[in-house]
Design a protein around this nucleic acid. Structure first.
Length: 316
DNA sequence: CTTGTGTCCTGTAGGC
DNA sequence: TGCCTACAGGACACAA
């Protein structure tokens, strides 16, 4: 499942292929994956705009778009349907100039949720299995959004102006790989809370970009059990946890993310990431702890309706 | 404000 | 073989 390191890997690997390209058309195989605004408005307003660069915030990937203002090239209308696609299963929207959006340009925000993938393919490539949306680009290629579970979402907003559907973007805490993410900040977030520390780590207001894999790994590295009441951590444990979060996420980026057998995450070029080789806790229930000298069996448990794995020998 | 639960969505795995 | 259920997971809505 794409968490911060996976989304950051995708951002880095897609940027060269996307930056400077213009969106010449949008096809929505599943209009309901558009979270904001309505699918027709989304497609119309995305069309014709240039991708200036890619950003990431937490698990959100952001395609920075130009203003769609003066000097914008009129997009080429394309009613040509692609071969082999049953008409009707796909909403083909006419490409038309969007009304100029005032201000600093737009953002095409993508959340991959649990199983979303992005690929850059020849524009006329046959539809991928589970393809939900396709952005045709200048230069003869297309950005394809593939999402088996259809929980992932696409949003189109004016830069920085997030609707309620994207309110999490505004409430999100500091980037855990940045200097703004300090032990003092984490301590404030955990102080006085009775909820399991694992549950709070998954809260994007506490540690944005963290999901189940990296929270389990950070807790392992910090030597803290996931079910500890958050407020019960000592200052030293909070410091270890803040450092572990930062390091585990950086390591995840260094190894280009975690690709498990279920293939829920792959890099845009279909290569696997390799952080799975460095996992100590996540997905290892029933296997022996990998820490030298510790052979305790990794245990599985559920907190806050979520699976967790931890080592009873290393985590207290 | 905090905490817990339900919802979305669909492929996969397991039981019988 | 085939149906059924449980499960996975992130984010949000809602209830207590």
């Amino acid at each position: 499942m794409p968490e911060l390191p996976e989304v950051e890997t995708i951002r880095r690997e897609l940027e060269p292929a996307l930056a400077g390209r213009r969106i010449t058309g949008v096809e929505l195989a599943r209009p309901d994956i558009v979270g904001w605004p309505g699918p027709a408005v989304f497609a119309r307003q995305a069309t014709g705009r240039r991708i200036d660069g890619l950003d990431r915030r937490g698990k959100y990937l952001i395609l920075r778009l130009d203003t769609g203002g003066p000097g914008r090239r009129e997009a080429t209308p394309s009613a040509r349907s692609r071969g082999g696609v049953p008409s009707g299963s796909r909403t083909e929207l006419p490409a038309r100039a969007a009304p100029a959006v005032p201000g600093a340009g737009g953002e095409l925000v993508i959340h991959l949720r649990l199983s979303g993938h992005l690929r850059v393919l020849p524009a006329r490539a046959a539809p991928e299995r589970f393809e939900r949306a396709r952005f045709r680009l200048s230069g003869g290629r297309a950005l394809v959004f593939i999402e088996p579970r259809a929980l992932g979402r696409l949003y189109l907003v004016e830069a920085g102006r997030y609707p309620a559907a994207l309110g999490g973007m505004l409430r999100m805490g500091p980037e855990p790989v940045s200097r703004g993410f300090t032990a003092a900040f984490l301590a404030r977030r955990l102080a006085g809370r009775k909820a399991a520390v694992k549950v709070l780590l998954l809260d994007q207001q506490t540690c944005c970009g963290v999901g189940n894999i990296y929270s389990d790994e950070a807790l392992f590295r910090a030597g803290v059990r996931p079910d500890r009441p958050a407020g019960s951590l000592s200052p030293a444990e909070v410091r270890r946890l803040a450092a572990a979060l930062r390091r585990v996420l950086r390591d995840g980026i260094r190894w280009c993310g975690t690709t498990l057998e279920d293939d829920r995450y792959r890099r845009p070029d279909r290569q696997a990431g390799s952080f799975q080789r460095h996992l100590h806790a996540y997905g290892r229930a029933g296997e022996p702890c990998r820490r030298p000298g510790c052979h305790v069996t990794i245990r599985a448990a559920r907190f806050g309706n979520r699976g967790s794995c931890y080592c009873p020998g290393c985590q207290h």
